[in-house]
Amino acid sequence: MPLYEHIFLARQDVTSQQVETMVDTYKDVIQQNGGTVEKTEMWGVKSLAYRIKKNRKAHFTMFNVNAPAQAVAEMERQMRINEDILRFMTIRVDELETEPSVMMQKRDRDERKDRERRERDGDAPAFGGSEGEEA
Rank of each mutant, 00 (worst) to 15 (best):
R87C: 02
V102E: 07
E5P: 11
V93E: 02
K54T: 11
V37A: 08
A73L: 03
K106A: 12
K46M: 11
M75A: 14
V37M: 06
T15I: 04
R118G: 01
D24N: 13
P100S: 05
D121T: 06
Q18P: 03
N64V: 04
E119P: 01
T98K: 06
M62W: 00
M104C: 03
P2I: 01
D94G: 14
D121Y: 00
R109G: 07
E95S: 14
E38A: 15
S101K: 01
R120I: 06
M42V: 13
G44W: 03
K54G: 08
E99R: 11
E76S: 07
A73V: 09
L3K: 15
R92I: 14
Q18I: 00
T15N: 06
A10C: 11
A67M: 04
R51E: 15
A124T: 14
E99K: 11
E38W: 03
D121H: 01
T25A: 07
R107A: 09
G44K: 02
V45S: 01
E97S: 14
D121A: 08
E111A: 13
P100N: 04
N64G: 10
E74Q: 06
S47G: 10
D121W: 00
K57M: 08
R56L: 09
R107S: 12
I30R: 01
M79W: 01
T98H: 07
E119L: 04
K54S: 11
S101N: 05
V14I: 15
R109M: 12
R56P: 11
F60R: 01
R77C: 01
E5W: 05
M103D: 01
I52T: 07
I91A: 06
M22W: 04
W43F: 04
K113F: 12
E20Q: 11
V19C: 07
N55E: 15
G128T: 10
S16P: 15
R109K: 13
T61E: 03
K57V: 06
M79I: 05
D28H: 06
G128D: 10
L3P: 12
D84N: 15
M42G: 12
Y4G: 05
D121G: 03
E133W: 07
S47A: 12
E116F: 02
D108S: 08
V14Q: 01
E76Y: 03
V65S: 04
V29C: 07
E131W: 05
F8W: 08
G34D: 09
V29S: 06
R115S: 10
Q70I: 11
A49V: 12
E74S: 07
A58K: 00
T25G: 09
E76A: 10
G44H: 06
H59A: 08
E95D: 13
M104H: 03
L86S: 10
D114W: 02
F8P: 13
M79N: 08
F8D: 05
